[in-house]
Design a protein around this nucleic acid. Structure first.
Lengths: 125, 125
DNA sequence: GTAAAACCTGACATTGACGTCAGAGGCTGA
DNA sequence: TCAGCCTCTGACGTCAATGTCAGGTTTTAC
């Protein structure tokens, strides 16, 4: 049951990300949080998507510093010349990384093909 | 000038990998080294390719432990049932990672398209 | 033969994204 | 109002790959 306004524990459950990490994301400027009168973090529903995006960018190899620098253009749909350059750089980095991973996957495929146990019958489809 | 038998410093220059890292690779069982009478490491020319492969697998997100487990089948062109399973698992992981990175690249492309400064004339090709 | 350069081992430092714990305060149901 | 859970800050721990340093030996160049 997703509420309009969430406490940190609920956001953690919704996203599968630890409470510790959500605090860390705030510290790094990746996930702004409102505060209740007593100082507890409160998140809007949109935070769920934001956390998913942050994790996706982490898995793509971006550092929190880089993500923090790109977030403003993602949020505002606008960019400065510097942030455009940054976006282009990261896009190119990703592109190179994808090409290299494909090469590595092919390399692994070759290894797999070479190491198939010849005593095992391979069925022709 | 590549010699038949290299000392660690030359291998480091050839590969662009630090001496420290080469020692670490040996410690992790990724890069075997012969020893001279006085105990210094000696590498055959083939070590250059081996180091490149190790680095490629690192960049693909494999840990040194995983690489160490896969090295025997890469070297011997044979495999045990366990190492075959390991190869398959890592191949699948790579495949998923590639698909996710492509999604992320597309995501970045959308961000870039959205943030193009509308005051700049875009030329139609 | 000697100085410089390269090498050795062993140990501690670093970085980033967290885990974990302590000690204190906040919130909710009976 | 009390129990029990949730949250807070701050600090230290972790892990993997690598940097860095110390103190000592080996190799190379002159």
């Amino acid at each position: 049951m997703v509420r309009q306004i969430m406490r940190i524990g609920e956001l953690a459950r919704e996203t599968g990300v630890s409470v510790r990490s959500l605090r860390y994301y705030e510290e790094q400027g990746l996930l702004p949080a409102m505060r209740s009168a007593s100082g507890q973090r409160r998140y809007p529903e949109a935070a769920v998507g934001r956390v998913a995006l942050v994790q996706q960018l982490y898995r793509a190899g971006l550092s929190s510093k880089t993500i923090a620098e790109l977030m403003p253009c993602i949020d505002s749909h606008t960019s400065t010349p510097e942030s455009r350059a940054r976006l282009a750089i990261e896009r190119e980095r990703l592109d190179r990384q994808i090409r290299e991973l494909i090469e590595t996957r092919d390399e692994l495929d070759r290894v797999i093909a070479q190491t198939v146990d010849p005593t095992v019958c391979t069925v022709q489809h």
